[in-house]
């Protein structure tokens, strides 16, 4: 029995990999600033935030969701993204054998504090290829402007 287990190195490496991922999560992301609303590494959806000269861009990596069921709100400069993801694994079928169930499912909600210089009235949200992208324009005062020299 042990022979057959060992002859499938894939399983062994998978286990090592999941152990490594657990350790990475436990150790936290090296060098990343710890915001007060930051959550444990590996939360769903994962979020990247970028800044352009004119806007703040929030990317939420939320695959397999109906875009219209996503709820995006901004309140007191906190952007909240929530929604739900249903499991694709058929339930209650004795014939179905599940080998991996890693994809997060159920209700999720994440919050991001935005910089102070955004204009929360100018927001655009798009969902494409499993990424929700929210663009929040910077307030007029924070945008770069050219000053003409007299």
């Amino acid at each position: 029995m042990f022979d057959t287990m060992l002859s499938r190195p894939q399983n062994l490496f998978d286990q090592l990999e999941s152990l490594q991922r657990l350790l990475t999560r436990a150790a936290g992301v090296e060098g990343a600033p710890g915001g007060i609303r930051s959550v444990a590494y590996g939360a769903f959806p994962e979020i990247n935030v970028g800044r352009t000269p004119n806007s703040v861009e929030v990317f939420a990596f939320a695959p397999g969701i109906d875009g219209s069921s996503l709820d995006v709100t901004i309140e007191r400069n906190v952007l909240k993204i929530s929604g739900a993801r249903t499991s694709t694994i058929p339930k209650g079928d004795a014939q179905v054998q599940v080998y991996a169930n890693e994809r997060p499912q159920g209700r999720f909600s994440r919050a991001v504090s935005l910089p102070d210089d955004v204009d929360p009235r100018k927001v655009e949200a798009k969902y494409r290829d499993g990424i929700l992208r929210v663009s929040i324009a910077l307030s007029a005062a924070a945008q770069p402007q050219r000053i003409s020299v007299q």
């Binding site: 695959p63 058929p90 179905v96 054998q97 080998y99 290829d129």
Partner: peptide, 17 residues
């Protein structure tokens, strides 16, 4: 997610973007 039924195996992979 990987699951097997009588007819075969289904694999779903999250690859956002």
């Amino acid at each position: 997610d990987i699951f097997e039924d009588a007819g075969g195996i289904t694999l779903l992979a999250d690859m956002p973007g």
